[in-house]
Design a protein around this nucleic acid. Structure first.
Lengths: 325, 325
DNA sequence: CTGAAAGCGCTAACAA
DNA sequence: TTGTTAGCGCTTTCAG
């Protein structure tokens, strides 16, 4: 593995000149620069990242810590982040925290140790790790959920409003006992979606269930809700994975979405239209969350003293037949 | 940001001792070690990764370069890799090459520059970048597709056999003009799936289409196939995203899967069962591909002289109604 | 068992 | 414009 001094020797210049030439710094004689580049190519020179990062005290890398790699909502965010970061020469590393505070903290530690320039994360709860980022002055921004007890840049979706509108849509369609299946208490998006639902239907009845943001939990929740003496005739479901569980429960009970039980779920998916009946969804602007978060992070890397901002994006109800009688 | 010398000073020992204590090396007085750990905690010491990696000439990180973060097949692989790597103290960084040779090469360069211990990748073609890994002696293993012109450890699925079996299943169900929609020529999985199809149905008719491994391309392909004078009565579809496009085309033409056109697609998905009729699929053992690849990579990191191995896993046909008349 | 010190490869003062 | 040189923070001989 050749080093900068090999290149310098071959080009007949000093290592400083090689460094300057290869990093496109001004004030290098074009002819020397050419010689340096040639020597570098001939040797197959690859700069030593750790050495560079050690010297610069920072790596041109941003870490993106998301709570579920298998959730298309988060992977779409990842694309948004990547596209913006790459434009300005940053690499993105994706870390999967799996909704698990330990893993999240572990990845935050790694990010700190590797001296990444910044971190974007979807916090899985009141994360102790984030305090470390703040303490070290590492730039970070939260997406999808705000950080409790901490103000930072954050990019959110107005999910409470979206939930309220989705519920209103079900009301408008003539459903009368609307239930809600949402995520765990304490997870902000789960609480907000429930709050939006309650903004629209004031009900004291037992029409709400919570579970993990997963299909299995939602399946149980739906089964329990629908087997009650006085079951709901419509359901607001708080994410995509949960929708799968709910729809499966409906199938098992021989209930047809739309006709028997109106269904609206958060997050659009390519297959939502393929269902019979097609699934009504609240589409969140995931890609834009990513691009916006990346832009904020870059701005904060450049200047960590700027006041924290809250960016709220809107969601869009896409009406399909699962919410029509 | 405190350094190892801060810790050393506070514990009243040398930096060498701190290093030894914190890295769990033998031969450190337990009492000193305790003092060191305490000092480290009090200072919130986080080792400087770049410095450590520079010195060690290697980072305890493996890079996973996949061709599509939004494809559940690859994210399942990612989980497999993570689970194995974490067990032995390696971190995993996920890079999304987007089926794009430039991005892939770029990520390979980054992996080399950052001196990662190894690379797992799903090659998007004859990648020049891989030669650099080999030249540098960085361990790597290919998943899903072998590397042309290069023998390395590789973890594959016997996708040709699986395609042949899936096609045979369609034949057994009484379909008589079976078509195939597969990925781009030159992509090994696409070619293999087509070959498996041809192993079963010897046809000279115009029943094959290729497109990107995406919904849009498959949609066009299906539309073109089905609007022929003598259209197919069944379709083998080479991946999950494509299945979405094909099913959409069927919907538009008012053709019902199973009854009108038999459909089998590669890759299972949680929503496959929700469709009406449910989708018959060839389920690939994605998670196991990941765990196996990680194990091979670890072995190769330990000993790069071992002969390359080819691991082939089987796929499983899951029969559902879309392939029943 | 512990400490002193060299040096990994690079960049950025500082000099020339 | 170019070169010389001093570290960045860590691990690891080598002495003690």
């Amino acid at each position: 593995m050749s080093t900068i001094s090999d290149v310098a020797a071959r080009a007949g210049v000093s290592t400083a000149t090689v460094s300057r030439a290869l990093n496109g710094k001004a004030n290098v004689d074009p002819e020397l620069a050419a010689r340096v580049r040639q020597a570098a190519t001939e040797l197959g020179y690859q700069p030593n990242g750790p050495a560079r990062n050690l010297r610069r005290q920072e790596a041109a890398v941003v870490a993106l810590i998301i709570s579920d790699v298998e959730n298309p909502f988060f992977t779409a965010i990842a694309r948004g982040v990547e596209d913006v970061a790459h434009e300005v020469g940053y690499s993105v590393v994706l870390c999967n925290s799996d909704e698990n505070a330990d893993k999240e903290n572990r990845y935050i530690d790694i990010a700190i140790q590797e001296r990444v320039a910044g971190v974007i994360l979807s916090p899985s709860g009141p994360a102790a790790g984030v305090a470390k980022l703040a303490a070290r002055g590492t730039a970070y921004v939260a997406v999808d959920r705000p950080l409790p007890d901490r103000d930072s840049d954050v990019v959110l979706v107005d999910t409470r409003l979206a939930a309220a509108q989705a519920t209103a849509h079900l009301v408008a369609q003539g459903y009368e006992r609307i239930g809600c299946i949402t995520g765990p208490a304490g997870v902000r998006t789960a609480d907000d979606r429930l709050a939006g639902y309650r903004d629209t239907v004031k009900t004291t009845k037992n029409l709400v269930r919570r579970s993990e943001y997963k299909a299995a939990g939602a399946h149980r929740a739906a089964a329990s809700l629908l087997s009650q003496p006085n079951p709901p005739d419509a359901l607001l479901v708080a994410n995509n994975a949960m929708a799968v569980g709910v729809l499966r429960a409906l199938q098992e009970l021989n209930l047809r979405p739309g006709r028997d039980v109106g269904v609206v779920a958060f997050d659009d998916a390519p297959w939502a239209e393929l269902l019979d009946p097609p699934l009504t969804v609240v589409a969140q602007p995931a890609y834009e969350i990513g691009t916006e978060a990346a832009r904020l992070l870059l701005a904060r890397i450049a200047d960590n003293t700027r006041p924290p901002t809250v960016t709220t994006l809107g969601a869009r109800l896409i009406e399909r037949a699962s919410s029509h009688r």
